[in-house]
Structures are given as structure tokens and as C-alpha cells.
């Protein structure tokens, strides 16, 4: 039970912690205010509680596929928000308020989805009584590992030289953004909204999804040990869109600056 709690909580906390770390590092690098953090935390928390308490209603919608669809929708929204940040990054100085809003929206969306999952799990199992101690201890360990990795990632990004912070953060946030599509595809396959194809390969013998390393890779780019063809295709397309959009944005902004 403890290991299950660690893995479940770690998966959710790690994803949010890494997003916060990269966004914070970018904010600092762009010399922007980090006020977005202070109001997105309560918004995300309240959103997670509301989402978790409405779980029954959400789950019953769309012939029982409501929860997966809602989560997939949030993941899709996250991808779009991150794509916008990536596109606007070369001209961040001209869009300070918009950037702050986008960062707050990204964190709020991530917290609503991940916070609600943790709440549902912890409240559900802790009330079972006999496993409460293991669930709480597992949750503390999972959250501790996730937050620690986030803090260390932030410290590592801040330690990079100025010309490397931007590039590294952009790569990381792009991978995280595309990772959400991987997760959304999986959710939609689970409720048969997308055809669940045969697994293209099985890399669980190299990195198991249930290991700490597997969770780290899941948080960074939505690691899936047994991806379907559709997942790989969508992943590749979304990754190309993300990097392509960033490249054209850099080129366009560079040309505008030269003009």
C-alpha cells in the first residue's frame, strides 16, 4: 500500500513541481514578477477540491467516460497554454502580463487535475482505516520526493549560465507540454474515444513505469512503457508543432528586431 501511495502521489506532485520549477526559472530569467505563483496556488487548490467533490457527476457524464474526458481536456488545454508560452518566449519582454497569466493558467490547470487525483486517492484510502498510516506515509514520501526533485531542478536551472537557462527551460517545458498529449491519448484510448492499437514496444524491462525513474520520465515527457502507434504519431506531431512554432517565432522576432 505504501509503495502504491508513493507512486501515485509522486506521479502527480512531480509533474506539478517540475512545471513550477521551469516556469519559475523562466520568470526569474526574464526578470518578471513571480506573483502569478501566489494566486495560481489557491486557484489550483480550490479547483482541485471542487473537481474532486464533483467527481461522481463528472464520472457519470458521457456514459461513464466523463472523468477521463475531463482530464484529457485539461491536458489538451495545458498543451495549448504551454505552446503559447513557447511561441511568445522570444518576445517575452513585450508580453509580461500575458506571460504571467499563461504561467498562472498552466499551474492552475496542472494543480486542478493532479491535486484532485491525490485528494480522491488519499481521502478514499485513508478512510479505509487499516491502511491509513501506510497511505499517509506513502503520500508524504511521494510528495517529498516530488517537491525535492522540483527544488533541485530549479536550483540546477538557476545555476546554468544565462544563455543556457532559456534553451534548457524551453526544451523541458516543450517536452512536458507534449507529454500531456501522451497522457491525454492514453485516457481517450481507455474510454474508447480513440482506437487502442497494439503496443509498439515494451520498454518496461529498461524503465518500469512504476519505478521512481519511470515516474521522473513520465513527468518530463509522458513516458509510456507500452505506447501505441497512435500515441507515437500524435506525440511526434505535437512535438514537431511545438519546436516548429518556437523556431518560427524566434526567426520572426529576430527579423522584427533587425528591422
Amino acid at each position: 500500500m505504501l509503495l502504491t501511495s508513493v507512486i501515485l502521489v509522486l506521479r502527480e506532485v512531480l509533474e506539478a513541481a517540475m512545471l513550477v520549477s521551469v516556469l519559475l526559472a523562466l520568470s526569474r530569467h526574464w526578470q518578471q514578477s513571480i506573483n502569478w505563483l501566489w494566486w495560481s496556488l489557491p486557484v489550483g487548490l480550490v479547483g482541485a477540491i471542487v473537481f474532486a467533490s464533483l467527481l461522481d457527476v463528472v464520472t457519470d457524464a458521457f456514459d461513464g467516460a466523463g472523468q477521463e474526458l475531463a482530464n484529457a481536456l485539461l491536458q489538451g488545454l495545458l498543451y495549448c497554454l504551454i505552446l503559447t508560452i513557447v511561441v511568445l518566449s522570444p518576445s517575452n519582454a513585450s508580453h509580461k502580463r500575458l506571460m504571467s497569466f499563461l504561467m498562472a493558467a498552466v499551474l492552475s490547470c496542472a494543480m486542478i487535475r493532479e491535486g484532485s487525483e491525490i485528494l480522491i486517492y488519499v481521502v478514499g484510502f485513508a478512510s479505509a482505516g487499516e491502511h491509513a498510516a501506510a497511505v499517509y506515509a506513502g503520500s508524504v514520501i511521494g510528495a517529498g520526493i516530488g517537491v525535492s526533485l522540483g527544488v533541485l531542478l530549479y536550483s540546477a536551472l538557476r545555476a546554468l549560465s544565462d544563455d543556457r537557462i532559456q534553451a534548457t527551460s524551453m526544451v523541458l517545458i516543450s517536452l512536458m507540454g507534449v507529454g500531456t498529449i501522451m497522457q491525454a491519448t492514453l485516457l481517450l484510448e481507455q474510454v474508447d474515444w480513440l482506437p487502442a492499437g497494439r503496443a509498439l514496444w515494451d520498454s518496461s524491462w529498461i524503465v518500469s513505469e512504476q519505478s521512481i525513474a519511470g515516474q521522473l520520465l513520465y513527468a518530463v515527457f509522458g513516458y509510456e512503457a507500452t505506447p501505441s502507434v497512435l500515441q507515437i504519431v500524435l506525440y511526434t506531431v505535437c512535438l514537431s508543432v511545438m519546436f516548429g512554432a518556437h523556431y518560427f517565432s524566434v526567426m520572426r522576432w529576430g527579423n522584427l528586431n533587425e528591422a
Binding site: 505504501l2 509503495l3 508513493v6 514520501i141 520526493i145 517537491v147 526533485l149 533541485l152
Partner: peptide, 22 residues
Amino acid sequence: SLVTMLVAAFALTSFLAALNGY
């Protein structure tokens, strides 16, 4: 900054050690 980094590193290794011990 130092305390945050050290506590994070210490917590990470402690938690991983705890899992291993468990």
C-alpha cells in the same frame, strides 16, 4: 537558497533510503 537546496537534497536521499529500507 542553500537551506532550500540542502533540505531538498537531504529529503530526497532520506525518502529514497526510506523506500529502500521499507
